[in-house]
Design a protein around this nucleic acid. Structure first.
Length: 622
RNA sequence: GCCUCGGUAGCUCAGCCUGGUAGAGCGACAGCCUCGUAAGCUGUAGGUCCCGGGAUCAAAGCCCGGCCGAGGCUCCA
C-alpha cells in the first residue's frame, strides 16, 4: 500500500464520473474539509485488512505529532503500478475507514472508483508532506500464524531428560554425577534450563577480527559476514576437507539452486512446518525464498530420479554456500549464529529402518572423524540423542550402541509423542567460553518427507515405496567450525597454553625472519624448498627489529618461526621456534619438513593466500 | 520482539558527569637504526565527534526524536 499523506489547510473535491463498474454510489457534489490530513491511498496487490490496520496505526502516530485528529481517505490509484484488483482495493479502503473510526479518528472518505476533481492547500511545514509504503502484512504472516499453531502444539510436548552412559545405563539427569563431565553438565543445563552464567562478549569475536579472519559487514544484513583472505582460506580448506570425506564415504556431490518458489506445493507444505524464518524476495510476480538447507533442492532432484533398492542407500551431498535463516536480530552473534552460512548437507535414502540404522552408525563415525580432522576432538564437544519413547523401546540396543561409540555419557531428550518429521536425531555440541552450546554435526531419521516430496524407490517385486531419509551435516556450518576453533584456542590460552589453530589450517605455517636484509636471498631459498614440499611459508622482510617481528608472528599464531642470520648460513641446522612446544629447537631442514608434513597428512592443501613477503601485505583490520 | 550499553582518527579507546581551541596508544606514511627470538627512535598526515531538532552567548558533551551497532533475554526446526 502506498500513501501520500498531506497536512492540508483544506481540500475540496467533487466526483465527476464513474471510472469503473465497481464504483461506489456517490453524489456528484463538491465537498470541502478543513484542517485535515489527506491520505491519498493506492492499494497494492497483496494488501489486506492487516495492511489497512498497519497503515492506520502508522498514520495515527503521526497525527499525534501533528496534533490533528481528522483524516480523509482518498482512493488514488496513480501512486502505484502494482494495483490490487478493484474489489480487493475497495475492501481494504473500507477496512481502513472502519479501523480509523474505531481508533477514534474523525474519518472521511472520498468515493472509490470515481474520476474526481480536487483542489488542495497544503501546509508548509517540514512534516506536512509525507509518503509512506506499508508492506503487505504478507501471506507469510498468515502462514506463520498457521505454523505457530502447529509449533505451539509441539511446544506443549514434554521432554524428558536423561544421561545415557556408554555401558547402556540411562539415568535421569538429576541423578547423574557430573564429576569429570563438566562440559556435559554445562551442555545439559544449557539445553534444559537455559541457564547462562556469562556476561562477557564471546572471545572469538575480537579474535576473528584481530587475526583478520572475518568481520561484521555493516553494509549487509546482520549475520552476513565479511571474510578476509585468511578467513576465506581457512573456510575453503574446511569445505574441501568435509567434501572430500563425504565423497569418500560414498555420497554424490550435487549443486542445487539457492532460491525456491514460495508457492511450489511440496515446498509450501514443508515451509509451513517451520516458523517463518526465511529471507523472502520478490522477482516480478514470483515470491521466492532463500533456502535454509539443501533439503529442497535435493528432494526435488531425487523426486525426478529413477532408482531402486539396488542403488540404496542412495547418498547425495551438497555444500551449500549459502544457506539462509533469518534469525531474529538479537540471536545473531559473531560466527556462532549467522543468517547466511555454509552448510554441508548429506542425505541418504534408505529402504527400511534396518538399512537406515546401519547407515546411521556409519555416518555417526564419519562425523566424529570429520570433526577430529578439523581439530575438534571428543573432549571438545558433547552429544545429545533425541527420540520418541516408542522408538527407544523398540531400538534400545541401537541407541546404546551410539553412546558406546562415542565413549562418553551423552544427554538424552525423550518425547512421548512424535516430534517434527523425525523419530531419532543426534547432535554434537560445542560448549564455548560463555557456557553456551552450539550444534555442530547432526544426523536424523526422517519418516515424513519422502511422502511429501513424492520420492519413491522400486523394491525387489517392482513395487514403489517411500524411503526413509537421513539428514546429516557432517561438520555443521563451516563458519561455526571456525567459531569453535577460535573458542577452543581461547580456552587453551586461559589455561596458560599458547592458542593455536591446527597446522593444516594455518595460513602461514612457517615464518622466516632474516636478521637483516643481507640474508633475504638465503631466506628465499629456504622458502622455495619448503614450498616445493607444499608447506606454506612466508618471509617477514620488513625493516623492523627482530623482536618485533617475532612478536607479530607469535600474535598471528604462526606455528613455526625460523630466524636466519650469519650462523644459519654456515650451519645445516635451523633454529625453529615451535609455538606449541614453547621453545626453539635446532633441527635439520629435512627433518623439519617431514615433521610438518606428518602433521598435515591426509588434509587438503592450498598455497599461501597472501603475498609471500610480509612487506607486500595490506592491513585489513586495525 | 523486549531490556541494557554503545556510536569521537584506519583500529582500540579517553574526553561527556561539571558546556568554553579535538586527545592518546597502536596502525599508515617519511626518515634514522641493520638488529639473535613477544613492542628501537624521530617526525608527518589523518576528524561531518552517527543524523536531525531544541534550550544556551557557546554543544562531542545537556534535552527530545531518529538511525545504526553490540551484549543480554527470548529463540535456536
Amino acid at each position: 500500500m502506498r500513501i501520500l499523506q498531506l497536512h492540508s489547510n483544506y481540500i475540496e473535491y467533487k466526483p465527476i464520473q464513474k471510472e469503473i463498474a465497481m464504483a461506489e454510489e456517490a453524489a456528484k457534489e463538491a465537498k470541502r474539509l478543513e484542517e485535515i490530513v489527506v491520505l491519498f491511498t493506492a492499494v497494492e496487490e497483496g494488501d489486506n485488512e492487516t495492511t489497512a490496520q498497519k497503515a492506520i496505526d502508522e498514520v495515527k502516530l503521526f497525527l499525534e505529532k501533528l496534533k490533528v485528529n481528522r483524516v480523509l481517505i482518498y482512493p488514488y490509484a496513480h501512486l502505484s503500478s502494482n494495483l490490487a484488483k478493484p474489489s480487493e482495493a475497495l475492501k481494504v479502503v473500507r477496512a481502513m475507514e472502519t479501523y480509523a473510526k474505531e481508533k477514534g479518528i474523525e474519518t472521511y472518505r472520498a468515493p472509490f472508483g470515481w474520476n474526481k476533481q480536487f483542489t488542495i492547500s497544503i501546509k508548509g511545514h517540514p512534516l506536512a508532506e509525507q509518503s509512506r509504503v506499508i508492506l503487505p502484512a504478507k501471506a507469510e504472516e498468515e502462514k506463520a500464524e498457521k505454523v505457530s499453531e502447529a509449533v505451539k502444539a509441539e511446544e506443549k510436548l514434554e521432554s524428558f531428560w536423561y544421561i545415557l552412559q556408554p555401558d547402556g545405563k540411562m539415568v535421569p539427569v538429576e541423578a547423574f554425577n557430573f564429576r569429570g563431565h563438566e562440559n556435559l553438565e554445562k551442555f545439559a543445563k544449557y539445553e534444559i534450563s537455559k541457564v547462562r552464567a556469562s556476561q562477557q562478549m564471546p572471545p572469538h569475536v575480537p579474535l576473528m577480527k584481530r587475526l583478520e579472519i572475518a568481520d561484521y559487514e555493516a553494509g549487509s544484513d546482520p549475520g552476513n559476514i565479511r571474510w578476509y583472505p585468511k578467513g576465506r582460506f581457512i573456510k575453503s580448506l574446511i569445505e574441501q576437507y568435509v567434501t572430500a570425506k563425504v565423497v569418500e564415504y560414498g555420497a554424490m556431490e550435487v549443486e542445487t539452486p539457492v532460491m525456491y518458489d514460495f508457492s511450489h506445493p511440496s515446498l509450501a507444505d514443508y515451509l509451513n512446518r517451520f516458523p517463518a524464518r526465511q529471507y523472502l524476495l520478490k522477482s516480478e510476480e514470483k515470491e521466492l525464498f532463500l533456502r535454509f538447507a539443501a533439503c529442497f533442492g535435493q528432494f526435488l532432484m531425487i523426486h525426478d530420479t529413477q532408482f531402486s533398492y539396488r542403488h540404496m542407500p542412495l547418498k547425495v551431498y551438497e555444500l551449500t554456500r549459502y544457506s539462509f535463516r533469518r534469525e531474529k536480530s538479537g540471536e545473531v552473534v559473531g560466527l556462532r549464529r549467522l543468517r547466511a552460512f555454509t552448510m554441508p548437507d548429506c542425505h541418504a535414502f534408505c529402504t527400511d529402518l534396518e538399512q537406515a540404522k546401519k547407515e546411521f552408525i556409519i555416518r555417526f563415525k564419519l562425523c566424529i572423524q570429520v570433526l577430529e580432522g578439523i581439530g575438534l576432538s571428543k573432549e571438545d564437544y558433547e552429544t545429545a540423542i533425541r527420540f520418541t519413547k516408542d522408538f527407544y523401546e523398540e531400538n534400545k540396543d541401537f541407541i546404546v550402541s551410539l553412546a558406546k561409540i562415542f565413549g562418553k555419557p551423552v544427554l538424552v531428550e525423550m518425547w512421548k509423542e512424535p516430534f517434527f518429521y523425525f523419530r531419532l536425531k543426534w547432535d554434537f555440541n560445542f560448549v564455548d567460553n560463555q557456557d553456551k552450546a552450539a550444534a555442530l554435526s547432526t544426523d536424523q531419521i526422517d519418516v515424513e518427507n519422502a511422502k511429501r516430496y513424492d520420492i519413491t524407490y522400486v523394491d525387489e517385486k517392482g513395487e514403489r515405496h517411500y524411503p526413509l531419509i537421513l539428514h546429516c551435516s557432517p561438520s555443521g556450518a563451516v563458519e561455526r567450525c571456525v567459531y569453535a576453533l577460535l573458542e577452543k584456542a581461547y580456552k587453551q590460552q586461559q589455561k596458560g597454553e599458547p592458542p593455536t589453530l591446527p597446522v593444516w589450517l594455518s595460513p602461514t605455517q612457517v615464518r622466516i625472519i632474516p636478521m637483516s636484509d643481507k640474508y633475504l636471498e638465503n631466506c628465499e631459498k629456504i622458502a622455495e624448498t619448503l614450498e616445493t614440499q607444499q608447506i606454506r611459508v612466508d618471509i617477514d622482510d620488513r625493516p623492523l627489529t627482530l623482536q618485533k617481528r617475532v612478536r607479530e608472528a607469535e600474535m598471528e599464531w604462526i606455528p613455526y618461526i625460523i630466524v636466519i642470520g650469519e650462523k644459519e648460513i654456515k650451519s645445516d641446522v635451523l633454529p625453529v621456534r615451535d609455538r606449541k612446544a614453547k621453545k626453539i629447537r635446532k633441527i635439520k631442514l629435512e627433518e623439519f619438513i617431514s615433521e610438518v608434513k606428518k602433521q598435515v597428512q591426509d588434509k587438503p592443501f592450498k598455497p599461501l593466500p597472501l603475498p609471500r613477503q610480509v612487506s607486500k601485505r595490506p592491513q585489513f583490520y586495525g
